[in-house]
């Protein structure tokens, strides 16, 4: 069946709006003791290898980090220090040879924290 008219088009589709789970990538910050912070990147889709990303992050920002297996959130990249904007730039940069065409759209990334 490929009749164009029969495609179901829900007129109320937009009513649900933001509540539909968009696959956001969440970049969060967490305070540690003193002026130390952690940056977590959560919600990367399966196409991205967290391991490779972490390696790139660590090299780029000269920080340490790890991948955490979380029960609900899956794999979360955790970096030492506040790298929120930098991570954002990294993930959205189409020009870089690391992300290239796999760069994310800015709308799909949410930065949390202050």
């Amino acid at each position: 069946m490929s009749i164009e008219n029969l495609k179901v088009n829900d007129p109320f589709a937009d009513d649900v709006g933001d509540t539909q789970p968009k696959n956001y990538v969440h970049i969060r910050i967490q305070q540690r003791n003193g002026r130390k912070t952690l940056t977590t990147v959560q919600g990367l889709s399966k196409e991205y290898s967290p391991k490779a990303l972490l390696k790139a992050f660590k090299k780029e920002y000269a920080c340490n980090g790890t991948i955490i297996q979380d029960k609900d959130m899956g794999e979360v990249i955790q970096l030492q220090g506040d790298h929120r904007t930098k991570v954002m730039d990294f993930l959205t940069d189409k020009g870089s040879d690391k992300m290239g065409k796999y760069a994310l759209a800015k709308e799909n990334i949410k930065i949390h924290g202050f």
Binding site: R32, L38, I68, Q78
Partner: peptide
């Protein structure tokens, strides 16, 4: 609330 790293 998203992922919460263990701190401290």
């Amino acid at each position: 609330t998203g992922f919460q790293a263990t701190v401290g």
